[in-house]
Design a protein around this nucleic acid. Structure first.
Lengths: 151, 151
DNA sequence: AAGGCAGTTGCGAATGGATTGCAACAAGCT
DNA sequence: AGCTTGTTGCAATCCATTCGCAACTGCCTT
């Protein structure tokens, strides 16, 4: 899904693991250990994580949580609007809190990912909307190119 | 690689299959049937093609050209700057002539890809350059979002 | 025209990321 | 405690792409 520029904020505010678990319950889901551990991993470090990274973190505490469980839980958390994933180029998708979604410039040479403020995209967003009726979601895929050091 | 906004045009001009084959020879490569058929497929329809699509077209004339040969040839043609690939979302990469590279808006709901004129990106490109020293290549990855019909 | 170096090919197997079917399991309702 | 239904572990599978390797062939040289 993703969070288009200027989307509404979620109805509840979600700033802790327990807030999310309440949401999970409300939507008919159950609170399980893997679910909680996954959320803790995501809240502990709000940066980018591949599913595999997250699995490793969770497995440090509960060794036999399976990678497929991580994927399934991430999928559900996306449905709930708690996390989003984005594609930082080739390689695995990265997941992070929806609240901290942002755009990226990714260097096609060295792979470095630079955070790009949303503000850079408002002009493009407005024109895409006006001229094409298209609402951009610049968070989901990053913008490729060359970073300062790799020109 | 890709073609950053405002990149230099190739030294020879390349407007026919034979032009490319000359280039192939000059770079120490050989002219083979699969190479020629692949190029014909790409020149015949300058739209987007997945490797698999191209394989099917080539195989109509030379049934045992292998998919891996298509990939290898596409790779070489990219090295030569004749074709580029871009990622139109999830799913396979699409290949097309470097000369006809352009940006895309891809609808995350229905998958529709809309051509986006480069001109829309000049403002973003300038700011990315000035503020981050980053040269964007908006052709390589498309911009995700919602199209008019899928708001 | 024949020979030979080096680029190419077909094939199958392997890779990496992600998804799925299924039977066993467990959260939390009553 | 019992039951319903959501969840999990596991293995198998999928898809796009890449790789190793022996056989092959373009094309330069003689």
């Amino acid at each position: 899904m993703g969070v288009p520029l200027g989307a509404d904020p979620p109805r509840h505010d979600i700033s802790t693991v327990d807030d999310v678990l309440v949401l999970v319950r409300e939507s008919g889901g159950r609170v399980t250990i893997s679910r909680r551990l996954l959320l803790e991993a995501i809240f502990d470090d709000p940066g980018h994580h591949s599913a595999e990274d997250l699995a490793a973190i969770v497995q440090a505490k509960a060794p036999d949580v399976h990678l497929s469980t991580i994927y399934r839980n991430l999928e559900e958390l996306e449905r709930l609007g708690v996390v989003v994933h984005s594609h930082l180029g080739h390689g695995p998708a990265t997941y992070h809190l929806a609240a901290s979604a942002h755009c990226h410039f990714v260097c096609e040479h060295c792979g470095a990912a630079v955070k790009a403020p949303d503000e850079l995209f408002v002009n493009l967003a407005a024109r895409a909307q006006k001229e094409f009726g298209f609402t951009i979601d610049p968070h989901h895929f990053s913008i490729f190119g060359r970073c300062r050091n790799c020109q």
